[in-house]
Amino acid sequence: MAYSEKVVEHYENPRNVGTMNKADPEVGTGLVGAPACGDVMKLQIQVSENGIIEDAKFKTFGCGSAIASSSLVTEWVKGKTLDEAATIRNSEIAEHLALPPVKIHCSVLAEDAIKAAVADYRTKNTDAKPEAAE
């Protein structure tokens, strides 16, 4: 099965590959996996004091669609608020990348990853700043 042009483009030129310091309180980390294919995806966000995502990085070991999905999400979330980032749906990712039905789970993985990263950031920052979580 052929990948769409957009998937190939992200696969060949992945955006924002890298790792942030997990221990940094400004960083939220989402680590998710799809055991059926042995994929593992890490998505990290760096959040400013006013709750804006300033930077995002990912590292994915998986198929082209999983790499493209996570690469795309790092592009999308930059400049967004945490709430906005958490509303990204896998259907939007799948549509943008023209993923075939058998690869929809890759977009689900990317949605789970960004949600997990947002949740991780919030958990980390609830203790320090209770009002910031609201």
Partner: peptide, 12 residues
Amino acid sequence: LVNDQELLTESM
């Protein structure tokens, strides 16, 4: 489903 962070961290 994988929500086993220990396993995912190890795999990564």
